[in-house]
């Protein structure tokens, strides 16, 4: 059976760049139907960009320079924006960070949903009832919320409406770009719970972009960790959280407070390097406590099956700072 999504060696760079220092490089990600994957990293790691590229929605300043994006068995060049966009609303849909900003400010909730149903070929007279059903499914009674404009919704409600609109396109794959970052903690929990439930009910594939490891632990079976445009580690969430093999993953997890042991978080050292600071070697070099001369000379490859790591000296039986997290 063909993979749902198959991104192969995607690379991204600034649109006008003449020197080769790709913002994102060697990004490969395979997703089976119904699989839920977390994509984790600090701001600037390239997680959102990679996924926007896979959807054909890159901002004008950035372009795809290499790679292909397969979806349900058909492959398209990553530079083929038109080909990629043709899949939006026809199997792939994106959720954005700011739910309220994502909704059309000039249309009532029910009209936004009905409109998308229209593009999906739902006959006019059925749209209203279908929209109402979808709204009920996310806990927004259409009688109360249907006639509202986006500015009359709370952040959580707006994100739910955005989910309804995404669901209205009947997707097989949902890419959620930090869908709860703008929300408070309680609302975040509800929205993520809803998202996980909807995906499970409908066997939706989901890529959850986040920097919140707790969310990943809750709903993602598999996790991909990015740093400075490289995937540094990927594999089953429980295994990685139990025993991180890349020093970056370990540092990332050490930065999360552990409520069980009362261990204080140790913040990440340094910052994500800028494009101008990318050298020939490992991009984690400057922040890595274990760097060796070899790390300076070349970028390590992403190696392994099922459990992958991009490091010349992967950690073996290290301390397990994330053990408690994995149990959340």
């Amino acid at each position: 059976m063909a993979a749902l999504l198959d991104i192969d060696r995607l690379a991204l760079d600034l649109a006008g760049a003449t020197d080769a220092a790709p913002l994102v490089e060697d990004f490969s990600l395979r997703l089976e139907p119904g699989e839920v994957v977390g994509l984790v990293g600090e701001t600037g790691a390239g997680k959102s960009l990679s996924m926007r590229a896979a959807a054909g929605l890159l901002p004008a300043a950035i372009r795809s320079v290499a790679g292909t994006v397969g979806f349900r068995g058909t492959s398209v060049e990553a530079a083929d924006t038109k080909g990629l966009r043709a899949r939006l609303g026809h199997g792939i849909c994106l959720l954005l960070q700011n739910g309220r900003g994502a909704l059309n400010p000039f249309l009532r909730v029910q009209d936004q949903v009905s409109r998308i149903l229209g593009y999906q070929g739902v006959p006019r007279r059925e749209r209203a009832s279908r929209a109402a059903t979808l709204l009920e499914a996310v806990g927004l009674p259409s009688a109360e919320f249907g006639a509202r404009y986006p500015h009359q919704l709370s952040g959580g409600q707006a994100q739910r409406v955005a989910m309804v609109i995404a669901l209205a396109t009947n997707p097989a794959l949902l890419i959620a770009d930090e869908p709860t970052t703008a929300l408070d903690v309680t609302t975040e929990r509800d929205v993520i719970g809803l998202l996980g439930r909807l995906c499970a009910e409908r066997a939706l594939g989901l890529i959850l972009i986040t920097h919140n490891l707790g969310l990943v632990a809750r709903i993602c079976r598999r996790v991909v960790i990015m740093h400075a445009g490289h995937i540094v580690e990927a594999g089953p969430t429980a295994e990685i959280f139990a025993a991180p093999r890349h020093p970056y993953t370990r540092a990332l997890m050490a930065a999360v407070p552990d409520l069980e042991t009362g261990r204080l978080p140790s913040p990440l050292e340094g910052t994500v390097p800028l494009r101008s600071e990318f050298g020939r070697g490992c991009r984690f070099l400057a922040r890595c406590p274990l760097a060796q001369p070899r790390c300076r000379a070349a970028v390590p490859a992403l190696e392994g099956e099922g459990r992958q790591v991009r490091c010349f000296f992967p950690l073996t039986a290290a301390a397990r700072p994330g053990a408690a997290l994995a149990a959340v």
């Binding site: 929605l57 849909c93 959720l95 900003g101 909704l103 059309n104 998308i116 593009y119 955005a162 609109i165």
Partner: peptide, 13 residues
């Protein structure tokens, strides 16, 4: 605007 991005993301022509 984000709402334009989202419209594209949901397959609006």
């Amino acid at each position: 605007e984000d709402y334009v991005l989202f419209a594209r993301a949901t397959g609006v022509p």
